[in-house]
Design a protein around this nucleic acid. Structure first.
Lengths: 197, 197
DNA sequence: AAATTTCACATACGCAGCGTATGTGCATTG
DNA sequence: CAATGCACATACGCTGCGTATGTGAAATTT
């Protein structure tokens, strides 16, 4: 049983990730000092380099964690929809809502791509996007959606949702523009629907 | 005539921006050394801080320049379209195609947002967005497009194109992905079209 | 046109922050 | 209980940004 050490190590990893989420979200990646960050977690940079290899490695871990949480929430949103098509729309709405959170905005949408490269190239393959792609592929297979490239459609849908979220976030009265954005999103998405023939 | 000095100053600004475009595009913003960059332009960091205030100011200038070039190209694309609706699509396609250029990829799509913040808040981006909004409003008025909120639709369309661009930028074979993205974009956009009835 | 001022840019300095090399104490193994 | 390994701390050097100060050429003044 190598449990005692492994358990503690997992604990320090969690502490560092927690502190990193806070620091990266509030100050941004570049401005976040690793000395401060690790001290906040009651550790030093030594622990950082041992566990994550460096600043970038920590960023990767943070991104992976948030990404996983986002997928979880999208799954929940999709699950409670009436149809698979409605599920896709609900996924988009859930995405919009998540993009409203400063942590997601700063880490996943702004700094993440700059530090780690485009999301589609991330090691764990941006599970969030993969999820949407699979849903769209299923909709194509069942004939609900036109025969377009599933990944392309997923990226566009996600992009539309993302920009809607940014718009809402920057608006004077977010709650007033939210329904407009959601309505336009739903209308736009119908462009993917199979035309009756 | 305060021309002699002002002219030379404009020249050094141009030299710095040129070197910065090269350095930022190839190494990325963070990895680009200002000492190297300015030396490449035959100057020192002194000129940099005098003209642009710092590294970030130079990035802003570079982004503004590229942004202006992009708007120019989008105007051309829209102008040669047959209809107003096709103009909107061509504008989006032009935007997507520009993502094939490494300079645009790295500077405008990856590092820019991280360094300068949300692109939708950039001056030129707003001008571009405003034009798109007006075009869509005109399309709504003439009955081509559904009665959705024009600004919401414009932001979603822009967002879709932006993400398509990001996708292409990071793809292994951009030229192979481009047609898929363009096709999906056109299909998605039809969601805004008025349904016959 | 000579003296003076201005200003664009160079030079010099200090400091923050990352990565690495080395040290140390606790947990594991026999 | 002695020996070993490993997680993390400590210590060091180097890079690179921003600022304070210096300088020579253009512009202005008389």
């Amino acid at each position: 049983m190598a449990t005692k050490r492994a358990q503690k190590m997992e604990e320090t990893r969690a502490k560092l990730i927690r502190a990193a989420r806070e620091a990266f979200a509030s100050k941004g990646y570049a401005a976040a000092s690793m000395d401060e960050l690790t001290a906040e977690a009651g550790l030093t940079r030594g622990a950082l380099y041992h566990n994550f290899g460096g600043k970038q490695g920590l960023m990767q871990a943070v991104v992976d964690q948030i990404d996983q949480e986002m997928v979880e929430r999208m799954l929940v949103a999709q699950a409670r929809a009436a149809s698979r098509w409605e599920g896709l729309l609900e996924e988009g709405v859930a995405y919009i809502e998540m993009a409203l959170e400063p942590e997601v905005q700063r880490i996943m949408l702004l700094d993440g791509p700059a530090v780690l490269g485009d999301p589609s190239q991330w090691p764990n393959q941006n599970a969030c996007l993969l999820r949407t792609t699979q849903t769209i592929q299923a909709l194509i297979d069942e004939g609900t959606v036109k025969a377009v490239d599933a990944e392309a459609a997923a990226r566009l849908i996600n992009g539309a949702a993302l920009n809607a979220a940014l718009w809402i976030a920057a608006a004077d009265e977010p709650r007033a523009v939210l329904p407009k954005a959601v309505e336009a999103f739903r209308q736009l998405a119908t462009g993917l629907l199979q035309t009756e023939g």
